[in-house]
Write a protein that binds this DNA or RNA. Structure first.
Lengths: 131, 131
DNA sequence: CCCATATTGAGTGTTCATTCTCATCAACCC
DNA sequence: GGGTTGATGAGAATGAACACTCAATATGGG
């Protein structure tokens, strides 16, 4: 059922999501929201994720080999970049475009995911120094 | 340590991998190999996967939101198509090509994954009939 | 063929992510 | 301000994927 009361914890979770530039794991979300509501429990974070997703306000970002991360919905079509060093996930604005050319014949293409891997802006310098 | 003896179960697992046109989950692998070795246990499948991967003969295919599947190594760069109906994963030969154009500036792109979703050859007809 | 021992398989353990339980707390209508 | 009751939080419970244990089995060199 939809929630009926406004609580500090729910507000903190939504604020953390709105403030973040990249999709967040439930743990990351809790850590951020704890700045506002120190006692915040994991169960509350998961409840918020469930409810917001049902409302359509939150989108799950599924990456290979990792639990889903979450970002606010309505950002339009985009992809993600995961840093192999810090593990953080960033948004990528572009898109390779129409992939029907590489779709096997007889198959119906409905959507696609592209994930880029490498080093993020912050980890590139560190990698150069450490051979 | 590397294995030292040839066993029926190991042979059955390797044969199942070689015979399959698409990456297989550990469960699928066990089901196929059981045709040859009925009593095959999961532990043996997981041990085979570990050993073959260490030897470089097996590659893990990580798909978003699903446990890894495995395919024999040495097939060259390619991507995958997952059917939303039967959940099977197929190989896709093409590749969108150079994605450095959409990589955020300052980031170092090392590799990419592309996953296509939709209906496979077998599920397309069924979907048309069932509205 | 025999036997030392690598390998197997059934069951148990572990780990991780997520959900549930329920007593306590706090929104919000009055 | 008080009371109703929905929301929270700590911890236990669940579920999935995979690794470990160990007695029984089977491989392959001699």
């Amino acid at each position: 059922m939809a929630r009926q009361r406004h609580t500090r914890q729910r507000a903190a979770i939504e604020a953390a999501l709105a403030a973040s530039a990249h999709p967040m794991s439930p743990e990351q979300l809790r850590t951020r929201a704890k700045d506002t509501v120190p006692g915040l429990g994991m169960a509350t974070v998961y409840r918020a994720i469930r409810d917001l997703t049902e409302e359509g306000a939150l989108t799950a970002v599924e990456l290979p080999g990792a639990p889903p991360r979450y970002e606010l919905a309505g950002r339009g079509h985009h992809h993600h970049f995961q840093c192999r060093q810090c593990q953080r996930v960033f948004e990528v604005d572009g898109c390779p475009g129409d992939l029907s050319a590489i779709t096997p014949s007889g198959f119906a293409l409905e959507r696609h995911e592209v994930v880029l891997y490498g080093l993020c802006e912050e980890c590139v310098p560190r990698a150069v120094m450490t051979p």
